[in-house]
Amino acid sequence: MMRAYVALGSNLGDSRQQLTDAMHALARLPHTRLLAHSHLYRTPPWGVHDQPDFLNAVVTLETSLSPHDLLDALLKIERAAGRERDDGRWGPRILDLDLLHITGITVNDERLTLPHPHIAERAFVLLPLHELASDLEIPGQGRVADLLRAVDTQGCELLA
């Protein structure tokens, strides 16, 4: 079994419900157990700024699925929620699931890069990831707690 970290985001429709439903879907994946989930965070959009704020979270999974099988499962959950992958880079979306890191695994191919190459740049990932694994070392990027100290968290809000 491997420990995997998945980022969740939504800024269309009932985002809170979308993230809750996605967490339930992740917990039902075969050969996978949902170990923990962060609180929800309201965060400003990243990349394309003319869109609604996002709700974001991170989950920790224990899984024996291969990285590519886990990626396929994440894409299937997105499609079931109504996500179409042609909706533009960094634009609004009903559900976004990003495989961030699998402990002990690196991948770099046409479909998947692990660890996710932009973890260190994104407060919307680092805030909830820090809640779950502040001492996690992201290969080639650094320790989550250190990465979080280096990003701008202005406009990010922990939700109850």
Results as ranks from 00 to 15, higher is better:
68 H>R: 13
20 T>K: 09
48 V>D: 05
43 T>Q: 06
108 N>H: 15
106 T>Y: 05
96 D>L: 02
20 T>Y: 12
59 V>Q: 04
138 I>H: 03
138 I>Q: 03
51 Q>S: 10
30 P>G: 09
140 G>I: 11
65 L>G: 03
97 L>E: 01
70 L>K: 02
132 L>K: 03
155 G>K: 12
6 V>Q: 00
3 R>T: 13
2 M>D: 14
28 R>E: 14
113 T>P: 00
64 S>T: 15
122 R>A: 01
123 A>E: 02
27 A>D: 09
115 P>V: 12
64 S>Y: 04
77 I>L: 13
80 A>L: 14
101 H>S: 11
44 P>R: 09
101 H>V: 12
34 L>K: 02
148 L>R: 01
25 A>E: 10
113 T>N: 06
129 L>E: 00
16 R>W: 07
16 R>P: 01
34 L>T: 03
149 R>K: 14
95 L>P: 01
104 G>K: 10
87 D>L: 07
12 L>G: 01
39 H>A: 14
38 S>F: 01
78 E>C: 11
79 R>D: 13
96 D>V: 03
90 W>D: 07
24 H>Q: 15
24 H>L: 14
60 T>R: 11
76 K>F: 12
71 L>A: 06
147 L>T: 00
28 R>D: 14
107 V>H: 03
76 K>L: 15
98 D>V: 09
6 V>E: 00
83 R>L: 07
146 D>Y: 00
88 G>A: 04
57 A>Y: 06
117 P>R: 11
110 E>V: 11
141 Q>K: 05
96 D>Y: 05
69 D>P: 03
68 H>A: 05
137 E>S: 09
47 G>V: 10
1 M>T: 12
90 W>L: 08
38 S>K: 01
153 T>M: 02
146 D>F: 00
2 M>G: 01
86 D>M: 02
99 L>C: 10
82 G>M: 07
23 M>N: 02
1 M>S: 14
30 P>M: 08
111 R>P: 02
57 A>V: 06
106 T>R: 12
151 V>L: 10
73 A>W: 04
105 I>K: 07
24 H>G: 07
156 C>Y: 03
36 A>Y: 04
82 G>R: 08
90 W>I: 08
14 D>E: 11
91 G>F: 00
76 K>S: 15
11 N>Q: 09
19 L>C: 03
66 S>E: 15
111 R>A: 11
21 D>N: 15
149 R>S: 13
34 L>Y: 08
